[in-house]
Amino acid sequence: MRPHSLKLSPDSDLIICIKEYSLSNNLYGYVSGVVGNLSKACIQCPGNQEISKFEGNLEIVSLNGNFNNGDVHIHLSFADEGCNVFGGHLEEGSIIKKGTDILLVSFENETIDISNQNLTNNQSRVKVYILKNCPWSKRSLRLLDSLSIPHEAILIESDKEFQKVNSLSNHNTFPQIFLDDVFFGGYDELSKQAKHDYLNSFK
């Protein structure tokens, strides 16, 4: 375990700084602590496709999540000048105001990639076929996680794998979500179902 203390300058983008630092140093780990403020905050709330944007003197209350060689999943909460607190998934566009200090903790253990091979024992009803760096794939997994829905995430990395899932769904866009091995839809259909019954029908 190794600590990393980052001092972010004004006008820096919070999530981009963490992404770039973890990518350039090939790091896997977690956000351990933060002190600082923002002039702008961009977050996504569970079940909501739109990005919520805030401006003003915003004090960071907490920042937690993980980073993996440039891929990040981080939650931000912050307070405005009236001490109203907001929170959600951190998105690009969250800009440092005066300065922010972040403590990251990285680990030496090998990072495990999502693949068919290491998820074959997962007996969940939901299978999500995803593409690397696909924002809609990431949002689908976040939504399932936020509602505690067991799921199997399968990363498509080759034309052969794409053709295989395409033959099952007859769709070209991602993510592709299956319930009990029957094609359900993508992120839009998942979000609509979440608003309908919080995905209880998926459990």
Results as ranks from 00 to 15, higher is better:
residue 131 L to D: 00
residue 115 S to P: 01
residue 179 L to R: 08
residue 53 K to W: 12
residue 84 N to I: 15
residue 124 S to G: 00
residue 63 L to H: 04
residue 131 L to W: 01
residue 148 S to F: 06
residue 90 L to M: 08
residue 74 I to C: 11
residue 133 N to F: 15
residue 70 G to H: 09
residue 54 F to N: 02
residue 124 S to Y: 02
residue 189 E to M: 10
residue 161 E to G: 08
residue 132 K to D: 09
residue 30 Y to E: 11
residue 96 I to Y: 05
residue 34 V to A: 06
residue 67 F to D: 04
residue 188 D to V: 07
residue 163 Q to N: 14
residue 132 K to P: 04
residue 109 N to A: 10
residue 199 L to Q: 05
residue 194 A to D: 05
residue 80 D to R: 08
residue 155 L to I: 09
residue 8 L to P: 01
residue 199 L to G: 01
residue 141 L to V: 14
residue 119 L to C: 15
residue 117 Q to I: 05
residue 190 L to N: 06
residue 93 G to R: 03
residue 193 Q to H: 11
residue 76 L to W: 08
residue 144 L to S: 06
residue 8 L to F: 03
residue 156 I to T: 08
residue 8 L to D: 02
residue 18 I to Q: 04
residue 94 S to R: 11
residue 1 M to F: 11
residue 11 D to A: 04
residue 78 F to V: 05
residue 151 H to R: 07
residue 156 I to G: 03
residue 34 V to Q: 00
residue 62 S to Y: 04
residue 19 K to I: 08
residue 122 N to K: 03
residue 57 N to E: 15
residue 132 K to Y: 07
residue 26 N to A: 08
residue 54 F to G: 00
residue 99 G to N: 06
residue 61 V to A: 13
residue 31 V to M: 07
residue 78 F to I: 07
residue 110 E to S: 14
residue 160 K to Y: 13
residue 179 L to Q: 07
residue 197 D to S: 04
residue 111 T to K: 11
residue 82 G to H: 12
residue 202 F to R: 00
residue 193 Q to P: 11
residue 15 I to R: 03
residue 88 G to Q: 00
residue 74 I to T: 03
residue 60 I to K: 02
residue 129 Y to I: 02
residue 72 V to T: 01
residue 124 S to N: 04
residue 178 F to K: 00
residue 135 P to E: 08
residue 185 G to I: 04
residue 101 D to V: 13
residue 30 Y to P: 09
residue 144 L to C: 08
residue 98 K to F: 12
residue 195 K to D: 10
residue 54 F to E: 06
residue 62 S to V: 07
residue 202 F to H: 04
residue 94 S to P: 03
residue 201 S to E: 02
residue 111 T to Y: 13
residue 66 N to I: 12
residue 188 D to T: 01
residue 191 S to Y: 09
residue 82 G to K: 14
residue 52 S to C: 10
residue 1 M to E: 13
residue 69 N to V: 09
residue 38 L to F: 05
residue 184 F to S: 07
residue 130 I to T: 12
residue 132 K to N: 07
residue 154 I to P: 03
residue 190 L to Q: 06
residue 23 L to I: 12
residue 119 L to S: 15
residue 63 L to P: 01
residue 16 I to R: 14
residue 111 T to V: 14
residue 56 G to P: 03
residue 4 H to N: 00
residue 159 D to P: 09
residue 25 N to M: 12
residue 147 L to Q: 09
residue 8 L to A: 06
residue 43 I to K: 01
residue 169 S to I: 10
residue 100 T to G: 12
residue 33 G to V: 04
residue 106 S to R: 04
residue 54 F to R: 00
residue 15 I to K: 02
residue 38 L to N: 02
residue 93 G to S: 03
residue 139 R to I: 11
residue 74 I to N: 12
residue 39 S to L: 12
residue 116 N to P: 11
residue 171 H to S: 15
residue 57 N to L: 13
residue 16 I to W: 12
residue 3 P to K: 03
residue 140 S to C: 07
residue 155 L to M: 15
residue 72 V to I: 05
residue 41 A to R: 07
residue 62 S to C: 08
residue 172 N to H: 10
residue 174 F to D: 07
residue 85 V to W: 05
residue 28 Y to L: 14
residue 30 Y to I: 13
residue 98 K to I: 12
residue 120 T to K: 15
residue 122 N to A: 03
residue 104 L to R: 02
residue 65 G to F: 06
residue 79 A to E: 02
residue 163 Q to R: 09
residue 120 T to C: 15
